[in-house]
Simulated scan of single mutants.
Amino acid sequence: MYKIGILGGGQLGFFLAKAAMAKGHSVLFYLQSEDEPANQLKASFIYGDKHDQEQLLAFFSQSDIVLLESEFYSYDLLFKLEKESGCTVYPRLDSYKKLWNKEEQKNFFSKINIPCTKYYLVKDLDDIQSLPFEGPYVVKLSYGGYDGYGNFEVEDKSALTAKVKNVFKNDLGHLIIEKKLEIKNEYASLLVKAKNDYLILSPCQTFQKNHICHLVNYPAVITQKKYNKILSIMDQIGKNLEGEGVFAFEFFETTDGFILVNGKIKDIELVTGFMNFEFMGGSMGRAVGGAIVKGAKFAIEKNLPYTIVTSSGGARMQEGIISLMQMPRT
Score class of each variant (00 low, 15 high):
residue 162 A to N: 08
residue 63 S to C: 14
residue 142 S to W: 04
residue 153 E to W: 13
residue 134 E to L: 09
residue 169 K to D: 10
residue 199 L to F: 15
residue 99 L to W: 14
residue 287 A to T: 04
residue 216 V to D: 01
residue 191 L to C: 11
residue 159 A to F: 11
residue 48 G to M: 02
residue 307 T to A: 15
residue 76 D to G: 03
residue 193 K to S: 11
residue 203 P to F: 00
residue 79 F to H: 03
residue 271 V to Q: 10
residue 123 K to W: 07
residue 234 M to I: 10
residue 293 V to C: 10
residue 25 H to I: 07
residue 321 I to N: 02
residue 39 N to W: 09
residue 128 I to N: 06
residue 108 F to Y: 13
residue 32 Q to D: 02
residue 55 Q to D: 00
residue 127 D to Y: 11
residue 245 G to F: 06
residue 37 P to A: 04
residue 128 I to Y: 07
residue 15 F to I: 05
residue 212 I to E: 01
residue 318 Q to C: 08
residue 236 Q to T: 15
residue 275 M to C: 08
residue 279 F to A: 14
residue 94 D to C: 01
residue 132 P to C: 03
residue 100 W to D: 00
residue 206 T to Q: 04
residue 329 R to P: 00
residue 224 Q to M: 04
residue 145 G to D: 03
residue 5 G to P: 06
residue 191 L to E: 13
residue 189 S to N: 04
residue 75 Y to D: 00
residue 35 D to W: 15
residue 57 L to A: 05
residue 265 I to E: 08
residue 114 I to E: 06
residue 272 T to P: 00
residue 239 K to Y: 08
residue 217 N to P: 00
residue 191 L to N: 09
residue 50 K to V: 13
residue 188 A to H: 03
residue 58 A to F: 10
residue 216 V to G: 04
residue 287 A to E: 00
residue 269 E to Q: 08
